[in-house]
Each structure stands twice: as structure tokens, then as C-alpha cells.
Simulated scan of single mutants.
Amino acid sequence: MGTLSSIRLTRVPNLAGKTPAEASAALRAAGLELGVVREIGPAGAMIVLEQSTLALTVAPVGTRVNLLVGRC
């Protein structure tokens, strides 16, 4: 069992306004994982409207971040 001191942390990127592909790439670059992506509104070009983990907060590496995306 690991100790608290062995947990690696990373800063959560601000994903608002990014496309789902851009958001996924930003999460990977930060050591985070893409969680559930929910879409609202009509089909078309989608951007991130909300994310489950607040932007610029610190989270453990590997944390899943869920996205709400909608038409831009």
C-alpha cells in the first residue's frame, strides 16, 4: 500500500472551449485520463462546456476527467 508522499500530482488543464480531441490530448499531456463524454444539443462541431474536475486544481496522476460537450 502506497503512502501519501508517493502520490504523483498534476495540474488539471482548462478544457473549456476546446474540441473533444484537443481536450483529450491536453488531458494525456497532463497525465490524466478522459472519462465519460456527454453530448448535449444538436450534432455539429462540439466544444467542451464543462469538466468534472475544476481547471487549474491539482489532482492525482491518472484521474479521470468527465466532459460535457455541446455545439459551439
Rank of each mutant, 00 (worst) to 15 (best):
M1D: 06
M1H: 09
M1L: 04
G2M: 06
G2K: 15
G2A: 15
L4I: 06
S5Q: 11
S6W: 00
I7R: 00
I7P: 00
R8P: 00
T10V: 02
T10F: 05
R11Y: 00
R11P: 04
V12W: 01
V12T: 01
V12E: 00
P13N: 01
P13M: 00
P13G: 00
P13Q: 00
L15P: 05
L15C: 05
L15N: 07
A16G: 14
G17V: 02
G17P: 04
G17I: 02
K18Q: 15
T19E: 07
T19F: 11
P20N: 03
P20I: 04
P20D: 11
A21C: 09
E22D: 14
S24T: 14
S24E: 13
S24V: 09
S24A: 15
A25G: 02
A26L: 13
A26P: 12
A26I: 10
L27R: 01
L27D: 00
R28K: 14
A29N: 04
A29V: 02
A29R: 12
A29I: 06
A29G: 10
A30K: 02
A30E: 03
G31Y: 04
G31W: 06
L32C: 05
E33R: 15
E33T: 10
L34S: 06
L34A: 05
L34Y: 06
G35E: 09
V36Q: 15
V37L: 07
R38W: 10
R38Q: 14
R38V: 11
R38C: 02
E39Q: 13
G41S: 08
G41Q: 10
P42V: 08
A43N: 14
A45H: 11
A45G: 09
I47N: 13
V48A: 11
V48P: 15
V48N: 07
L49K: 10
L49V: 15
E50L: 11
E50R: 12
E50M: 12
E50P: 06
Q51I: 10
S52F: 10
S52W: 15
T53Q: 13
T53G: 07
L54D: 14
L56I: 04
L56T: 12
T57F: 08
V58N: 06
V58S: 12
A59K: 01
A59F: 01
P60C: 01
P60I: 00
G62D: 04
T63F: 03
R64D: 06
R64Q: 09
V65W: 02
V65C: 04
V65T: 01
N66L: 08
L67G: 07
L67W: 06
L67P: 08
L68S: 05
L68T: 11
L68A: 07
V69W: 06
G70I: 02
G70E: 10
R71N: 12
C72L: 04
C72Q: 13
C72N: 11
C72Y: 09
C72E: 11
